[in-house]
């Protein structure tokens, strides 16, 4: 399968000469098309920095990031915005929905920014809404939705442009367990049925158990890699727990 994302020797330093923090240190990995990959690590391990670098929100110190064969570390701000809009889809822990817009308007916004005609865009939003079962909240404002609904609206917004890669940052972080399960099932379906490539950052083992492959990161370095293969989700879950324990995470990081 084709490589969607290829990260090689990525480094990100913070601070100055006197106090240097290596947030990312020689990170290399790749994600293939149609893959559902996860990045796990405890707080401060550098996983969010990694995601920010891939999502072009943050600049890198050295190394290369290729998405669909295009080097993105050297892009100008104008190109970056365009690239972000067309090739990437985002999901965040705090949803990042615009509070002044309805669900429908939130989802359609990436399309209007890219100049898609209203009729085409509307049809597309409705199709995506059906798939994520959020048709009945489309007319509501974010503050009228539950956390799970908000996150599914965010997911709809993330996939509306048919991005090459969906980046999810702790998507279940603010959800209760039931909503979290439902959201992960939705993402799983997106991945299986539509072939969406997803890269998700989480520190929650249950959420991570929906992935096909998990990269563990610790103190800015890749530490381990787990592949689900033919395992059931339960088996995969206990393997993840083992690694998390090995990583030195305490009980709070497990569940």
């Amino acid at each position: 399968m084709a490589e969607i994302l290829k990260v090689s020797n990525l480094e990100k330093y913070y601070g100055n000469k006197d106090s240097l923090t290596k947030a990312l240190d020689q990170v290399s990995f790749s994600v293939a098309e149609g893959e559902f990959a996860g990045i796990m690590g405890s707080s401060g391990s550098g996983k969010t920095t990694l995601l920010n670098c891939i999502s072009t929100l943050d600049s890198v110190t050295s190394g290369s990031i290729m998405i669909r064969g295009q080097e993105i570390t050297g892009l100008k701000s104008r190109q970056l915005a365009k690239f972000r809009g067309s090739a990437l889809g985002f999901m965040f822990q705090d949803y990042n929905l615009l509070d002044t817009l309805t669900g429908f308007e939130n989802i359609i916004l990436p399309l209007t920014i890219h100049g898609i005609p209203a009729a085409v865009a509307t049809a597309k939003v409705e199709a995506v809404a059906d798939r994520l079962e959020i048709r009945d909240v489309l007319a509501h404002y974010p503050y009228e939705m539950s956390g799970g609904q908000k996150q599914r609206v965010a997911a709809a917004r993330a996939i509306i442009t048919d991005p090459a890669l969906i980046l999810a940052d702790e998507p279940t972080g603010a959800l209760d367990s039931k909503s979290a399960r439902r959201l992960m099932e939705s993402l799983d379906r997106l991945n299986r049925n539509l072939g969406a490539t997803i890269l998700m950052v989480t520190h929650d083992a249950f959420t991570a158990s929906y992935c096909q492959r998990i990269l563990f990161i610790k103190d800015g370095k890749l530490f381990n890699e787990l592949i689900r293969g033919e395992d059931t989700r339960k088996e995969f879950f206990s393997k993840i727990i083992d690694v998390v324990t090995l990583l030195g995470g305490d009980a709070a990081n497990v569940l």
Binding site: S55, L57, L80, A81, G85, F90, N96, L98, L109, I113
Partner: peptide
């Protein structure tokens, strides 16, 4: 948020 979903600085 707009920036994250692909609006450039000029826009």
């Amino acid at each position: 948020i707009l920036k994250k979903i692909g609006a450039d600085d000029a826009l």
